[in-house]
Design a protein around this nucleic acid. Structure first.
Lengths: 206, 206
DNA sequence: CGTTATTTCAAACGCTTGTTTAAACTGTCA
DNA sequence: TGACAGTTTAAACAAGCGTTTGAAATAACG
């Protein structure tokens, strides 16, 4: 395995657990068993390393996501639950792409919204605008009465729910294990959260 | 104003915007216009300062919150929307206690879940257990079919929605202003989010 | 007043951070 | 073989961090 990939893998796992600010280059290079200077040699800076870690997932995910959403849009009598499921399916497929892929990616996404003053949010929305556009289109088809403004709010609430849940999923799964003696994985958590957000978006207008 | 309070105010605002790890003591003391060593003199350490910032709010909020929840529990035919409204009212009252109180507190709460490897979560749940207990009781009365485990998950989803929304409320309100020409304040955002989370918690069991 | 106790202050401490340097090593091709 | 590009390495860099120090300033009290 190349030095570059060793760094990407180590960085990804540490970033997911400890956040971007909370992970030092020395931790990364020591876990990757490469020299400290290798990060700056191969990526230029820590910030660029973060972008590379995210891009590796987004380049894999973005086409699948758009395809899945476009596909579901052709369906008649579309429900919100189906829309969200269409969104989730490519996410879960990241586990085939990489071990713990789904979990890592969603946790990284969550970190990106709280760490590093939102530069990751800018990066994702400007680099991958097709995803959100197709998602909005699908929701609009499933729930046409929803005004654009109301949808704006509810989709951001949904984003928040997912992102927050994933970034603290380890802690939540631990509590669930000790309180209810139920072992849970990321897919299980997602199964719990989908009905929640679907119902939220589908909430009746006042 | 005392040095201690100057530090608390400066720390609170900076923590809310930049997170705990992202804010240095030098930033805090320079904005508070006090000496750097004052933090360690008055609070002992940065960690204790964080606790103090949170305690100032929790000591104000916790009794009001419990009273409001106990009060609503006496009602017949309780709905989830009423339960959440009972929770929100004391939160909004923090604005009378302190300028930007509601917004700051909720943002800090959000930071506490992602920054500093969750020690704040431990702090809050062990120091203020009454709040969550009463809330669970109220939800249970409004929606008795919900199992304890399902409620655990949905309440954490709700927490995530609120916390994420509040921590990015400034950005969201800006977008709403430019896209829909609608000026929004924190109370307005909360009015939007309440039906969403109420519907989420009330989602039918599969 | 003088004597404590409390609070402030500038300066330094030891440590960690991301980044850079220049030398050493590796493989490739003439 | 010798030369050259690509890569790795140990060491150092400057800057920032939380914390500690001991003396100066201030407040409180008999």
């Amino acid at each position: 395995m190349s030095t570059k990939n060793k760094i990407l893998d180590a960085a990804e796992n540490l970033f997911a657990i400890q956040g971007f600010n909370g992970t030092s280059l020395r931790e990364i290079t020591s876990r990757a068993e490469v020299n400290l200077a290798a990060v700056n040699y191969h990526f230029g800076s820590k910030k660029e390393l973060i972008k590379s870690v995210m891009s590796r997932y987004m380049n894999e995910l973005s086409p699948r996501l758009e395809a899945s959403l476009v596909n579901i849009c052709e369906q008649e009598n579309l429900t919100l639950l189906e829309v969200f499921s269409a969104f989730i399916e490519p996410l879960l497929s990241l586990n085939e792409f990489k071990e713990n892929g789904t979990s890592n990616f969603l946790q990284l996404l969550g970190r990106g919204y709280s760490d590093s003053q939102g530069f990751l949010r800018w990066f994702l929305t400007t680099q991958y605008p097709g995803v959100i556009n197709n998602f909005v289109k699908a929701v609009q088809k499933a729930y046409p009465e929803l005004t654009t403004e109301e949808m704006f709010w509810r989709l951001h609430f949904t984003m928040g729910t997912i992102v927050f849940t994933m970034s603290s999923s380890d802690a939540l799964m631990d509590i669930a294990k000790s309180d209810f003696d139920k072992t849970m994985d990321i897919a299980g958590v997602i199964k719990k959260v989908i009905p929640y957000v679907a119902a939220g978006v589908a909430a009746p207008l006042l």
